[in-house]
Design a binder for these strands. Structure first.
Lengths: 142, 142
DNA sequence: CTCACTGCAAATGATTTGCATTTCA
DNA sequence: TGAAATGCAAATCATTTGCAGTGAG
């Protein structure tokens, strides 16, 4: 049920093939993205980048995130009440539970939801392009 | 399945009771909210307000929306790629399908989703405070 | 060598806020 | 009257963009 991240795609190779230049800042950002399993926002990625190479700017982080998103390499999530958070694409589809106390994100999958969504769409006469299913809650106290 | 809005709550009465002053701008905004069944954003509410009373400011619209939200009189929805949109509370719970071509919002209910959500939360050891379930799609072509 | 990419600072868009001035109860 | 609410303009926050300089291929 809970998804385990096992795939660590080689972004550089894929991007190069798509005609994108692998510059110094991009190398750093890509490294961070493939090393993490959490859902950092742009500022957090910027902080981690600067720790590796002090010359990187926040604009470049934003530009790179947009580029990677357009290339399908990452997903952007606009969870409630905060900036966009990113995760790399490539795993199987999943949805998110956000811990409203800590901001932690827990991934889960449910094929019944996918199926339910199709049912509803069909009934309403729509083709679904994508969906958002997010649970917001707090850890159950023992 | 598709929800029909039949309830038109008397906001003024409820607000008065809660110790909120019913001022001229608020009267106008409340009138707009109880007259509509769509999901306008702040700017749209502002436009409709100004058409009734040219003296109303956008700040007041925002302040009023925040107030009403805190009082539970309206719900705020941050659909993808746009400003917050509002709808009055009071009906039964429902989720939304957003037409990505027109921006139209279609409401639907599904008790199976509510039930599924509880199941997932239980499995993950969380108490759910609320959720977001939004479908984004386009009308099926014949 | 050239054009994509960068850093920086300024612009944006949605929303909020400080403050002096009304206005509801 | 006095606290609460308003309008306006300025501030915030996340994000984007213009531009002149830099560097990857």
């Amino acid at each position: 049920m809970v998804k385990h991240k096992t795939i660590k795609p080689d972004y550089e190779k894929a991007l190069r093939k798509a005609g994108v230049r692998i510059t110094r800042p991009r190398k750093v950002i890509l490294g961070i993205l493939s090393a993490t399993d959490d859902h950092p926002d742009a500022l957090e990625i910027f902080r981690r980048s600067v720790a590796i190479d002090p010359g990187i700017s926040l604009s470049t982080v934003y530009r790179t995130m947009k580029l990677l998103e357009e290339m399908g390499a990452i997903h952007r999530h606009a969870f409630e009440g905060g900036p966009s958070r990113f995760e790399r694409a490539g795993g199987e589809h999943h949805d998110h539970l956000i811990d409203i106390e800590t901001g932690d994100v827990i991934e889960f999958t449910s094929d019944r939801i996918e199926q339910l969504q199709d049912e509803i769409a069909k009934k309403l006469g729509y083709d679904i392009v994508h969906h958002r299913f997010e649970l917001y809650g707090r850890k159950r106290r023992a």
